[in-house]
């Protein structure tokens, strides 16, 4: 495949998707959910971009949009510099996915061999007589013995199944792997093994990763860039070191403060955020985070803050990002509390 010299493996520009929910067949008007709104990023070969956020923030929908499992309403996706608008065989080969649940993502009545054979057959990767060797090679590559080939998924442990999921993803020489919470369904003592495997494969195959996770400590370890999503929008985006050195959006700070440090000497004194995520069907005016934001001011209710550069390679969508330099601000109880906080919840 020809490739623009310096094009990133994947580039996403102003991606947007709204889902329409019909309340009931009697009502004509439909509820509109803003699933993904104006999301842009790019990932270069060999690097990892982490997509962080809470459930329903649009991170999984973003993955489905890239994979063309869901059609975007607007926006462009470029694979190696070339626009993608439908699920071409090339897209299906170059972009692979590792799923969260290794129990649900392997077809239960397929033997491991059939699971790994499928992508090779579909993409005509190799002649039939070399198939078995190739399958064996990808099993070995993920650290399993070749004899798992004849087994069924339910005979393997969670960690082993996730390795098979990874083997399936790398077997077709992809360039981008979307890892959707690849370890959160696994036992704690297995997680590091899988993370190490992913890191090894990234290095040896020069893979780009889109790493979807809610675990900021893990993200800090595996990623090169971080994008934080809230209600369908990216609210902060930066290189990992920069991000963890000083997040510049109150939501990122709250996420960071909410992650439970495994050290009893550093107990958080109170939950950093009160309230819950606003309903995606009835977004507040202005900034959608303002209903929970400890720093919200009047302007936040009127004007939606754009995602803009606040430092080199550091984007934030907050009117007060400029003030967010010291890390105390969020936890300081004397920080200005806006009159619109807490926003009355819809009953």
């Amino acid at each position: 495949m020809k490739r623009a010299a310096d094009a990133p493996v994947i580039a996403v520009k102003n991606l947007a998707k709204r889902f329409k929910l019909r309340q009931s067949w009697l009502k004509r008007d439909k509820l509109v959910v803003r699933a993904v709104d104006d999301v842009s990023f790019e990932i270069a070969a060999g690097s990892t971009m982490a997509l962080v956020g809470e459930s329903g923030c649009g991170k999984s929908t973003t993955a489905k949009l890239i994979l063309q499992l869901v059609k975007p309403d607007s926006g462009e996706i470029y694979l190696n510099g070339e626009p993608v608008s439908e699920a071409t065989p090339q897209l299906r080969q170059k972009v692979q996915m590792v799923f969260q649940d290794p129990y649900a993502s392997l077809t239960p009545h397929f033997r491991i061999e059939s699971i790994l054979r499928e992508p090779l057959v579909v993409h005509r990767i190799c002649p039939p007589n070399e198939m078995r060797d190739r399958i064996g090679a990808s099993i070995t590559a993920v650290g399993l013995p070749v004899d798992v080939m004849s087994r069924y998924p339910h005979e393997l442990s969670g960690g082993q199944r996730q390795r098979i999921g990874i083997a399936r993803a790398i077997s077709v020489n992809p360039e981008l792997i979307i890892c959707d919470e690849p370890v959160s369904a696994l036992d704690v003592s297995i997680r590091s093994q899988i993370i190490n495997l992913l890191l090894d494969l990234q290095q040896s195959h020069n893979l780009a990763f889109l790493f979807i996770s809610h675990d900021l400590d893990l993200v800090a370890h595996v990623s090169d860039f971080v994008a934080v999503m809230y209600l369908g929008k990216i609210v902060e985006q930066a290189a990992t070191e920069k991000f963890f050195a000083g997040p510049r959006h109150p939501y990122s700070r709250a996420l960071l403060a909410s992650s439970l440090v495994p050290d009893p000497k550093k107990r958080i004194q109170f939950a950093p955020l009160s309230g819950e995520v606003a309903s995606p069907t009835e977004l507040p005016t202005g900034c959608s985070f303002r209903t929970r934001c400890p720093l919200a001011i009047d302007k936040c209710a009127r004007v939606e803050p754009p995602l803009q550069a606040i430092g080199e390679g550091h984007l934030s969508a907050c009117h007060r990002a400029g003030e967010l330099v010291s890390s105390e601000m969020l936890t300081d109880p004397s920080a200005p509390q806006s009159a619109i906080n807490p926003q009355p919840e819809r009953i």
Partner: peptide, 8 residues
């Protein structure tokens, strides 16, 4: 639960 809710 989500992390911010977990803390609560």
């Amino acid at each position: 639960l989500d992390v911010t809710i977990q803390a609560q």
